[in-house]
Simulated scan of single mutants.
Amino acid sequence: MPAGQPHAHEAAAAACVGSGANHSNHRVPAHSPPPLPAEVVPAYPPPESEDDETWVWTQIKAEARRDADAEPALASFLYATVLFHLATLTAHPSLRAAVVADLLAAHSRDPACVGFSHCLLNYKGFLAIQAHRVAHVLWAQQRRPLALALQSRVADVFAVDIHPAAVVGKGILLDHATGVVIGETAVVGDNVSILHHVTLGGTGKAVGDRHPKIGDGVLIGAGATILGNVKIGAGAKIGAGSVVLIDVPARSTAVGNPARLIGGKKAEGANEEDMPGESMDHTSFIRQWSDYTI
């Protein structure tokens, strides 16, 4: 296909939206499914009732059908991109599980996320992470020129720059995502939440293993910069705008420029299993450790 020429399903979607034509002319089944009642598209999966992965893909299809019924102008796009193409994501089951964990993370942690299909199609932080997962597989397969080309394209489109060699866990939320940079030897654990303009970078002089290691359940606030091969312990919290150059112990907070450590005392009423990367609690340390009041 010549460069710049749209794929068939993209052209069909554009033609449908532009002309108002019935989407049955664009490879959509002649008999569209009936509208779905609200209870078919609940907000969260029933607890302890179904496997997360199966439930989420079923949920996405239900939401896409609902939205296609509600917005005929979007019907061709939704059928082409979701309802016709929710087969196996890749040949790697672990990647499929990571995608589902990322969808659940966005839906549960971001109050602006109105549904799984919305996240799947429109959330650039989610899309950037999934593109990185593909690039990481390519990197591991020694297909490095293609992996780097994908990295460059993702950076151009989403303003998120993640080196293909970086190791990223599952259940990741890039909230807003603009300006996120993750270096080559960085490691990000599971259930981590990262806000916009966060840098996991080197110090500019070291070589080799030179980027941060982020533990499970960490929350990194907007504009934070973590430099060097430092370790951020599980359940730690990095305040917005902080510059971190030293290790941060588990369950503690780092704030300021340069960052100072605050931590060691359990928050009143907090559960030992609570993780800031999942709770998205940015400000409890102020009440616990500071005389400053708003």
Rank of each mutant, 00 (worst) to 15 (best):
I162N: 02
A177R: 00
R153P: 03
V248K: 02
A224I: 03
R144S: 09
V248Q: 00
T225G: 07
D102A: 03
S24Q: 14
E10F: 13
V167L: 13
Q288Y: 07
L86S: 09
A177M: 07
V17P: 10
W55Q: 05
P42K: 06
C113N: 08
V137P: 05
R109W: 06
R251E: 03
S152H: 15
R210T: 02
D51T: 06
L78K: 08
K237V: 00
Q130R: 07
S49T: 11
R153A: 13
P47Q: 10
A259D: 04
D190L: 01
V167W: 12
A128W: 03
F116D: 01
N22L: 13
P111R: 06
L261T: 03
P45I: 04
G277R: 00
V28S: 08
K237Y: 01
L150G: 00
T81L: 15
W55N: 04
V40A: 13
A12C: 13
D52Y: 10
A166K: 04
D51F: 08
R27Q: 13
A73Y: 06
D190S: 01
D274Y: 02
G228P: 03
E50H: 15
V114Y: 14
H197M: 14
P46V: 09
I286F: 07
R144D: 09
S49P: 06
A70D: 12
F77E: 09
S284F: 13
A68W: 08
H85Q: 14
R153L: 13
L103G: 00
V248P: 02
P6H: 06
Q288C: 09
L245T: 01
S24L: 14
H23L: 14
A87R: 10
M1C: 15
V17K: 12
I220M: 02
R27P: 01
G223P: 00
A267L: 14
D69W: 13
N22M: 11
D247M: 01
N271A: 15
T81V: 12
G183T: 00
P276Y: 04
L148A: 04
S117N: 13
S19H: 07
V56P: 03
Q130Y: 08
F116C: 03
A222E: 07
G183S: 05
